[in-house]
Write a protein that binds this DNA or RNA. Structure first.
Length: 594
RNA sequence: CGGGGCGUGGCGCAGUUUGGUAGCGCGGGUGCUUUGGGAGCACUAGGUCGCAGGUUCGAAUCCUGUCGCCCCGACCA
């Protein structure tokens, strides 16, 4: 391709709406244009990058025997009603775009395809003899994100590869899950990305085992905790660790202490010579469930620990057997609306009585009581006395209402690891580019997708599901591979592998040599770009750096002697060599890399 | 959804406080000079100042409404 015909429009100024380097560079380099909030056009070079990523993904999945399909984006609501996700995905902070057709039928734009694929599988897969089957598609997805941001990182329309596997037994599911994990590692490696697999929460999709693939980058939206020996890595949403050892409370009788103006753990400890590990704090939250229930919830944590909301939402869902739509602290305003009198905020204990909820308007009239192990393991502790400005010193759990034990604390950098106390966790940021789940039978049961097993009985299909954010991956690659001058694409996904720059277009010698080199690359099957524009050399160099082609060959002053300059984008190393040698060097580097 | 901010040629911005009919840089076009790291000079095209009302002799500027976009948050009493 010739740059003169590429519709290359690069920008010198940083676009006002782009915050992070990858977003700025993709816009400046002429790769993407914003059409609306969270909606982007992929310009020709970007589409080339995306197609290269797709090709790698296809090759690796086809290698596993997965079958490519293309599923509808427009999906009937009744399908989602049967899986029980229509309400959660469309109401409140639901992320599904939905619409009505001229017959007033409800439809959704697919944010994911479990429903469609499970329906199809139930229809087509009738015998264990047909299993296992893995289907995948590379498809545009729609999600009405609460806050789209960072260009392609969190868009409302984006490209995703999603795969679904179907199995007759758990062992088979685990085999495919492992094979997929291996394929993912190869995909990210071939894309030139440094990605780590971390234990993850399975979130709204549901299911059991789940791992996320994170591209490490400062602009990442997720926090990852890893052990120094490399044996443990997890998203902070899911991470576990050994809490610090609590200091024992001095001997003494249980007693009330006056604690005026000591509503926080810090204040309480400072005023009474306590360590936060000697206290239990109680958070009061309201969980909204997808069956309409509004459940007041008391959460007890050791004073030095932080609540992990994701773990909490999961624990509440398990306890109440309903999905949590939202969970947040109860405000005084809400108490008023429920006709309830004020709670003793700042001095609440785990034994706050259910009578505090008596007469409420729409809430459940009893508390769900959850406690983290760090709190339950304290033999004696200080906690709120449920009356303003009073705490209770030396309490025990004996006299408390029953608590549901759950892991509710946030693991932090510096904590000791569960697998080996000599290891500690450290944190880094990551961009989630892939996620694999063992779904189990959640969707196949809801949608009645059954097959006949070897014993002749009907059984729900076991499922796995595996996603890669293709467009996000492309931007993550830029986030991981750029410098002050611009993008530095990994060779495997660069829109072009080499750019031949004619320094001075008026010089026929330069033009002839450059054309010859360019043609040789094309003949060798290499994706080459020829900068044949009538621009000053400096402009062409700046553009080449900005758009990030891995190899640049400059045909300039020494063209008369047949010599050209070879520049490697990633290292910015440049050498002046005879043109045959330049061709060979670039060709070799490309063939060994791919 | 809560808070903050911004909408002025294709892009980045000034002008708005104190109303007087629009400007700078980049980019585009033409010409001359220049020619290996985003050239110089000259000329030139391009904007109902997001939209709709209102106030006024007069509105980018003041008032009301509305739409769009960006940022922060939706956190532990």
């Amino acid at each position: 391709m010739r740059v003169s015909r590429l519709m290359l429009v690069t920008l010198r100024d940083v676009p006002a709406d782009a915050e992070i380097p990858s977003h700025q560079l993709l816009v400046r380099g002429g790769y993407i244009r914003r059409i609306g909030s969270g909606i982007y056009a992929y310009l020709p070079m970007m589409w080339k990058v995306l197609r290269k990523i797709n090709a790698i993904v296809r090759a690796e999945l086809n290698h596993l025997g997965a079958l490519e399909t293309l599923l509808p984006q427009l999906q009937p609501a009744d399908l989602w009603e049967r899986s029980g996700r229509w309400q959660g995905y469309t109401e409140g902070e639901g992320i599904m775009f939905h619409l009505e057709d001229r017959q007033n039928r409800q439809l959704g734009l697919g944010p994911t395809h479990e429903e469609v694929i499970t329906e199809l599988a139930g229809d087509l897969l009738r015998s264990y003899r047909q299993l296992p089957v893995t289907l995948y598609q590379i498809q545009t997805k729609f999600r009405d994100e609460i806050r789209p941001r960072f260009g392609l990182m969190r868009g409302r329309e984006f490209i995703m590869k999603d795969a679904y596997s179907f199995h007759a037994n758990q062992e088979d599911l685990e085999n495919t899950y492992q094979a997929m994990a291996t394929a993912y590692a190869r995909i990210f490696e071939r894309c030139g990305l440094e990605a780590v697999a971390v234990d993850a929460d399975s979130g709204a999709i549901g299911g059991a085992a789940s791992q996320e693939y994170m591209v490490t980058a400062a602009a990442g939206e997720d926090l990852i905790l890893t052990s120094s020996d490399g044996l443990y890595a997890a998203n902070q949403e899911k991470a576990t660790s050994r809490p610090p050892v609590a200091l024992p409370l001095a001997a003494g009788e249980e007693r009330m202490i006056e604690t005026p103006d000591q509503s926080s753990i810090e204040q309480l400890c400072a005023a009474n010579g306590l360590d936060p590990t000697q206290t239990v704090k109680v958070l009061v939250l309201l969980a909204r469930l997808d069956d309409g229930r509004e459940q007041p919830t008391l959460v007890s944590l050791r004073g030095d620990q932080d609540l992990n909301e994701v773990k909490l939402a999961n624990a509440v869902s398990r306890s109440l057997n309903a999905a949590v739509l939202e969970i947040r602290p109860i405000s005084e305003n809400q108490l008023c609306q429920q006709d309830l009198s004020e709670f003793p905020f700042g001095a609440i204990g785990p034994d706050l009585s259910d009578t505090a909820l008596k007469g409420c308007r729409s809430w459940e009239n009893h508390f769900l009581r959850l406690a983290d192990a760090t709190a339950l393991d304290l033999p004696r502790f200080v906690c709120g006395a449920n009356s303003k400005d009073q705490h209770c010193w030396g309490r025990t759990w004996d006299a408390m209402p029953a608590q549901i034990k759950a892991d509710l604390r946030t693991a932090r950098a510096g904590d000791q690891c569960v697998h080996d106390p000599s290891q500690t966790l450290s944190e880094c940021r990551g961009i989630e580019v892939g996620h694999i789940f063992q779904l189990g039978r959640k969707y196949s049961e809801a949608l009645d997708a059954r097959f006949t097993n070897s014993a002749g009985q009907q059984e729900a299909l076991l499922m796995g599901c595996y996603g890669i954010g293709i467009s996000r991956l492309a931007q993550a690659a830029v986030e991981q591979h750029h410098d002050e001058a611009g993008i530095s694409w990994p060779l495997g996904i660069a829109p072009f592998q080499v750019i031949v720059v004619i320094a001075k277009i008026q010089d026929p010698t330069q033009v002839a040599l450059a054309e010859e080199l360019y043609q040789s690359f094309l003949d060798a099957g290499i994706d080459a770009l020829l900068d044949d524009r009538d621009e000053r050399a400096g402009v062409k160099f700046k553009d080449a750096d900005l758009i990030g082609i891995p190899w640049r060959i400059v045909v300039g002053r020494d063209a008369g002697e047949g010599k050209v300059e070879v520049v490697e984008r990633s290292t910015r190393c440049s050498t002046s060599v005879p043109h045959q040698e330049a061709f060979q060097q670039v060709k070799d580097s490309i063939s060994t890399h791919l």
